[in-house]
Lab assay of single mutants.
Amino acid sequence: TYVQALFDFDPQEDGELGFRRGDFIHVMDNSDPNWWKGACHGQTGMFPRNYVTPVN
C-alpha cells in the first residue's frame, strides 16, 4: 500500500521517517491509528498518519 505526503515531516526522534510534501511512502505497518511504519527514499521509520493520504 502506498500513501502520498500532504506535508513535509522532519523527524524529531530516532526511528521516525522524514519526507517532503508529494513524496510516495510504502506503508509497512498501519496497525496503529496514529503512527504508521513506512519506507521512503531508502529509509524506513514511523510517521504520523495525518500527514499522508491514500493513493489509488
Results as ranks from 00 to 15, higher is better:
1 T>W: 06
1 T>S: 09
1 T>C: 15
1 T>Y: 15
2 Y>W: 08
3 V>D: 01
4 Q>W: 06
5 A>S: 04
5 A>Y: 01
5 A>V: 00
5 A>H: 00
7 F>P: 00
7 F>H: 15
7 F>I: 15
9 F>G: 03
9 F>S: 07
10 D>S: 10
10 D>T: 14
11 P>E: 06
11 P>C: 05
12 Q>E: 10
12 Q>T: 11
12 Q>W: 07
12 Q>R: 15
12 Q>M: 15
13 E>K: 15
13 E>W: 07
14 D>W: 06
14 D>L: 08
15 G>V: 09
15 G>A: 08
15 G>S: 12
16 E>Q: 14
17 L>W: 04
17 L>D: 00
18 G>T: 11
18 G>R: 13
19 F>M: 04
19 F>V: 02
19 F>I: 05
20 R>N: 11
20 R>A: 11
20 R>V: 09
22 G>Q: 05
23 D>V: 01
23 D>E: 09
23 D>P: 00
24 F>R: 12
24 F>G: 03
25 I>F: 02
25 I>K: 00
25 I>E: 00
26 H>P: 01
26 H>D: 12
26 H>F: 11
26 H>K: 12
28 M>V: 14
28 M>N: 07
30 N>A: 13
30 N>P: 09
31 S>G: 09
31 S>C: 07
32 D>T: 06
32 D>N: 13
33 P>W: 06
34 N>V: 15
34 N>K: 14
35 W>M: 14
36 W>C: 06
36 W>K: 02
37 K>Q: 14
37 K>W: 07
38 G>I: 01
39 A>C: 11
40 C>R: 09
42 G>L: 04
42 G>H: 04
43 Q>S: 13
43 Q>W: 06
43 Q>G: 08
43 Q>N: 12
44 T>P: 05
44 T>H: 07
44 T>K: 07
44 T>V: 14
45 G>F: 03
46 M>A: 09
46 M>V: 14
47 F>M: 01
48 P>G: 03
48 P>R: 10
51 Y>F: 10
51 Y>C: 10
52 V>T: 07
52 V>A: 06
53 T>C: 12
53 T>D: 08
53 T>Y: 08
53 T>I: 13
53 T>G: 13
54 P>T: 15
54 P>S: 09
54 P>K: 15
55 V>L: 09
55 V>T: 15
55 V>C: 15
